[in-house]
Computed example of a mutant assay.
Amino acid sequence: MKGVLLVNLGSPESPTPKDVKPYLDEFLMDKYVIDVPYLLRALLVRGIILRKRPEESAHAYAKIWWDEGSPLVVLSERMQQKVQPLVNVPVALAMRYGTMTIEKGLQELHDKGVTEVLLFPLYPQYAMASTLTILVKAEEIRKKKFPQMTFTDVPAFYNKPDYIKNLADSMKKHLEGFDYDHLLFSYHGIPERHIRKTDVTKSHCKIDGSCCNTPSPAHEFCYRHQCYETTKLVIEQLGIPQDKYSLTFQSRLAGDKWLEPYTDVEINKMPAKGIKKLAVVTPAFVSDCLETLEEIAMRAKEEFEENGGEEFLAIPCLNDDDQWCQTVGNWINNWAK
């Protein structure tokens, strides 16, 4: 019997330092997120970051928390509940970090008699710190707990025509009536070394401005290329002029060279360049979360206005959009035939 496991990032149980700390520990101690030797990672995370970050992050989570719980979890659940009636196989939901574990999701499917699982990381673009860590963790659990199961992975869908159409249609709907000066595509940042580590050719990815536009097998796993490709395809669908949009990367940790340009730096410069009305879309996420609701819709908006900006629109993620849920249902049905 076939079944599907949708997997998103995860969330602390509550917006309190007590619950945020173990969540951040699990997340940041993942060797695919902070990819340095274990002892150095433990020193960095447990000796430095976790001394202050839980309180700061808890404050940020508290600003966006809903009565029903974490927005990321609630929106993922709404999506799963909309997709389930569209397909003829069980659809379970799990998170890579936190208490809604991949093991619990696989157990739920196992209890329904599922032996063939479609693993569906809810990330349009491939990255070590998102897609790969889900696939590796799921395989570890399968070997230990569910050896009779087989997995099929959903590859990055950054350029799939139906996904691009869903994203473009959603953006068009939210941009209606907003006469923006500039449209910013803000993607989650990753260290530049992650790009080089996932380069299957070991030589193509130079992050020099041209490699992402030069055809290569490396692009199948290149997060940077896939971000630029998503942007290009959406821009083509919407017919937006070249001088009216740009692409940046948000959410970096200090100490490493991360993908540039940086979202906060660029946004803060925009009012001085005459950009007074700014729209921001975050296509690295399919569900709104801390990085979209607090970092962009609150913090970036506030800084934009402090620097002279007048109007700021944070475009929601696809979330449980009906078209998007139908697309996911279609992909599942095509696999389940």
Rank of each mutant, 00 (worst) to 15 (best):
32 Y>I: 08
10 G>P: 05
32 Y>V: 03
16 T>I: 06
28 L>H: 03
30 D>P: 09
4 V>W: 05
18 K>G: 03
8 N>I: 01
28 L>F: 12
6 L>D: 02
26 E>V: 12
19 D>T: 12
23 Y>Q: 12
25 D>K: 15
29 M>T: 12
5 L>A: 05
10 G>D: 06
29 M>F: 06
24 L>T: 11
9 L>S: 04
21 K>D: 12
32 Y>Q: 13
10 G>V: 02
18 K>M: 07
4 V>R: 02
32 Y>L: 13
25 D>S: 15
7 V>Y: 05
28 L>K: 09
20 V>F: 03
12 P>H: 09
15 P>A: 02
4 V>G: 01
25 D>C: 13
17 P>F: 11
19 D>Y: 11
24 L>N: 00
27 F>M: 13
20 V>S: 11
33 V>S: 09
15 P>E: 06
23 Y>D: 08
20 V>E: 08
7 V>D: 05
15 P>F: 04
11 S>A: 05
28 L>D: 05
23 Y>K: 09
15 P>V: 02
29 M>N: 12
6 L>S: 03
12 P>F: 08
9 L>T: 08
28 L>A: 10
19 D>H: 10
31 K>W: 13
31 K>P: 14
9 L>W: 05
24 L>M: 04
24 L>H: 10
33 V>F: 05
32 Y>H: 15
12 P>S: 04
33 V>G: 08
30 D>N: 11
19 D>M: 13
33 V>N: 10
25 D>G: 14
21 K>W: 08
4 V>S: 02
27 F>C: 09
28 L>M: 14
14 S>G: 03
18 K>P: 02
14 S>Q: 02
23 Y>M: 11
9 L>G: 05
7 V>L: 06
25 D>R: 15
23 Y>V: 04
5 L>C: 05
10 G>H: 10
11 S>E: 03
8 N>Q: 13
15 P>L: 11
13 E>I: 00
13 E>P: 01
16 T>W: 10
6 L>A: 02
19 D>E: 14
26 E>C: 04
28 L>C: 10
9 L>Y: 13
12 P>G: 02
24 L>W: 07
28 L>E: 07
6 L>I: 00
32 Y>C: 04
21 K>G: 08
31 K>L: 06
8 N>H: 11
28 L>N: 12
12 P>K: 11
